[in-house]
Design a protein around this nucleic acid. Sequence first.
RNA 1: GGGCGAUUAGCUCAGUUGGUCAGAGCGCCACGCUUACAACGUGGAGGUCGCAGGUUCGAUCCCUGCAUCGCCCACCA
Length: 1023
Amino acid sequence: MQRPGMKEELPKQYDHSTTEKRWYQFWLQKGYFHSQPNPQRKPYCIVIPPPNVTGALHLGHALNNTLQDILIRQKRMQGFETLWMPGTDHAGIATQAVVERRLWQEERKTRHDLGRAALVERIWKWKDEYEARILDQLKRMGCSCDWQRTRFTLDPICARAVRHSFFRLFRDGLIYRGKRLVNWDTTLQTVISDDEVFHEQVPGHFWYFRYPVLDPQPGDPPYVTVATTRPETMLGDTAVAVHPEPAAALDKAERELANRLATAPAKERPQLEAELAELRQRRSSLLPLLERLRDMARQGRKVLLPLLNRPIPLICDEWAKPEMGTGCVKITPAHDPNDYEVGLRHGLPMINILNLDGTLNANAGPFQGQSIEQARRNVVAAMEQQGLLEKVEDRLIDLAHSDRSKTPIEPMLTDQWFIRMERLAQMAMEAVQDGRIKIIPARYAKGYLDWLAEKRDWPISRQLWWGHQIPIWYCQTASDVELQRAFAGRQDICWRQDQDSGQWLICALEEDLPEDAIPGHRLRREEDVLDTWFSSALWPHSTLGWPDQTEELLYYYPTSVLVTSRDILTLWVARMVLMSLYNLGQIPFYEVYIHPKILDAYGETMSKSKGNGVDPVDVMEKFGADSLRFGLAYLTTETQDIRMRVDFECPHCGKLLEQTLDNRTLPRITCPHCGKPFATQWAEKPEDKALPRGPVVSERFELARNFCNKLWNASRFALLNLSGYCPAPVPDAELRIEDRWILSRLATVTQQVTDALAEYRFSEAARTLYEFAWDEFCSFYVEMLKSRLQEQGSRAVAQRLLAHTLDVLLRLLHPMVPFVTEEVWQRLADFAPERGIDRPERAAESIMIAPWPTADARRIDPQIEAQFARFQQVLRAVRDVRARQNVPPKRKIRFLVRCDVPTALLLEPMAEYFGPLAQAEPTGWGPDVQPPPLVATVATAGMEIFVDLAGLIDLEAEIARKKQELAKLQSLMEAKQRKLADPAFLQKAPAAVVQQHRQSLQSLQEQYDALQRWLTQHAQMPS
RNA sequence: GGGCGAUUAGCUCAGUUGGUCAGAGCGCCACGCUUACAACGUGGAGGUCGCAGGUUCGAUCCCUGCAUCGCCCACCA
């Protein structure tokens, strides 16, 4: 394919809209993104953290993928065989929930109305739509993924890896089925993992219930009081617990409190003292009762569970804390995690009172069929009616909610599948502990290790329809012999007896089993699907073709780095590590880079549901993809999250309106500037949707947009001045000071950027390039080339240097701003197809595949850089005087520099640049210059600059200013002198530092003297 | 309760193996459309680097405590 056509004229402003699509197509058609195993090169591979197909990408994804593309593009230029594996995640619960919600909103249907197959079909449609949108977003950002390899966690390749992993785990006894108390989401009707639960404080109550004592003996209390925040659970109570050693427990609590009090800061003391007093009070009032109850429990006494009139035992268990509540605790093993443990310890019945939809079941007796809320009210009312409600307290309750449906979690006893973590977690910990996997920044390793150290078994079954169905078939009736006969010689089938139910659990590797796989018996397939993280955990190797030993797997694995944000370090990263170690005996990646999170102006993470999410496409349409990318890289520092104020942009008048907590979820907003309404992402009603949409953008991308424009214009200057360019080596002898300076700086910057990217210091790389390109290349070098390009004699060399410097700069910038650099690269090729000042070579047909620059250490010249800094100092001083004295811009001024001979020798060759850069003309430099009578002076270290201001100067103002400066210098000098008079400093500080301070004082003294001279001289002059 | 991070100019944030590094962008002020760029140029104002101690010849940087904010994990009948 030919290079796509470019408009001949160069617009003054860089127009991203006309270039981005063109070059992306060009790259695609050239096949640059595609990677094949190539033994001649080293591999570099990143697997994308697959975005959920739940919805479109927001700025957090944009950041994640920008950083990956920067790494990938740089490594590609560095000559690695570079593969960026793209794909998306089916995100089981989240996606099904979104589709179900929409089904309900639009058609008032539940998933049961539709049935499994139809619902799954709908979700596939949703997936197709959003996957396309997501991939399009990535492409617009310029991501150089190998699209030919795009995967989806439910596609056949991933599904095969899931089946193989499950089969191996099951065969090895690492997967089991068991009754467990799980987090039940009554809305979605599925179990969710602890990690999908969030806690929220809600106002609630503390109800005190009385349970009558059965057959009270003399001295027994008539009833036992227990407190609860969930009254309805009493229907499932199977015991009341009291501490076995209440006195000892109270002593211990008291000791602990006293210890805390001893070390507590004054502020917390009153609080602690109050607690201590209360504890002592409680001891005297409650202890006899608790000890009595303890004795009763030991005797096997019972209480009567009201409403259901079920006798339940009093038991002794340490879970009942005498210092809390009433000192006694009701035990509901089937609906509370702690009670469940108690139930296991005491062999208590576990009575489930809930149906899957959150209504009460037959075990709830008269409350059957009621919702939890109804039952709660009715239970309380009934207890009150029977005189068994002692009191009610208001209280804030930390309630567990489902992250997916936002409904309160009900702990529920159900059959679930688990993975034993003991061994797997250990392996995953060791991989990080022994340094095989490096987590960057290192502080995140702790969270990873702590989480794994708990080694809690991983619940992997979900009662969903969208996902990988668990490849298990149940058979109740067959015998072991029949199984062996039916599956004789089949390596791909294994089975085990379920401990609880006694039925066979049969696992099949790749083929699904028919109902009649065992003659004379019926098999029933497990309906549950696997937790989404199960397939995500396989992502690095499943996408490369495992379980087959594909060429790709052998070549690219382990992958180079995983780039992600900290919140899924455990959920995803840890699980990838352990599954990879289990399946392949290899780590999945060498490094894990954790990048910052993007927060809104209020410090909240961005999410679509909050309404503060920003579509990167909005940002790109306004600022361009390069600006999005550069802006994000510029903000990616090691410690800070990225806080970003976002604004609505009115589609009518273009003005910005800050997004606030109040307006961010409105479906339509009326622009306060022009009074016209526009739609937001929340628009659903037809009349809202018909309005033009107001995109959400952030002014934090302006810096990057301006930078791209600056780069564009510097390039534009180059292109306008390269006609007649002729490549040739430039010998050192032909280099001028400014050339040696820019080449030295270029080499330094090359090294700095290369190092920064190697260590994931994106912000530093971006800042280094920003400053070099703007403050050095544009502000000085290009300015100084202007006159050289005008003159025939110097033009050719100047062109070679210009082309070369721009060429290197473009390559260094390309990973961050791929589009504008390619646009310039291509145009540059028209004038200067061969570039370089040592040995000019033909430039690559695309900057994407041009070699990454290497720092030429030979060019680094600190002396020249220091000398050039001198020149800049003089220039700044002259400009300063001009501005201060309000010298009209076109008026030329003259100046002298009093300095030593070496400095004068340096300044000499720069003389001609003071004209174009400062409208100034040097009339002499050296130790013996004679300043004219009326001058403005600037004294800097080692130099005194006199600007001739005859007829221009505002003497009064200048004198006032000088006096101020004098005072400032004086205080600086005094501080210095004090320091240099301090024997401790002289004795202990390194000699070099002392010397530095001496020089510094001397220089201050010179400046001071110069000012003094000027003041004495001008004080007598008539103004 | 445990852990992690932050606190620097009006705003958003860099920075430091502890010694002229107190910086950038935006905003503000003054002057300029000078033949790459007003999305620009030149110059300027603006900060006892959260507070209090400590270590050190020397602390914005290291240590301790405190305050405020954010995040993660655990947990409260």
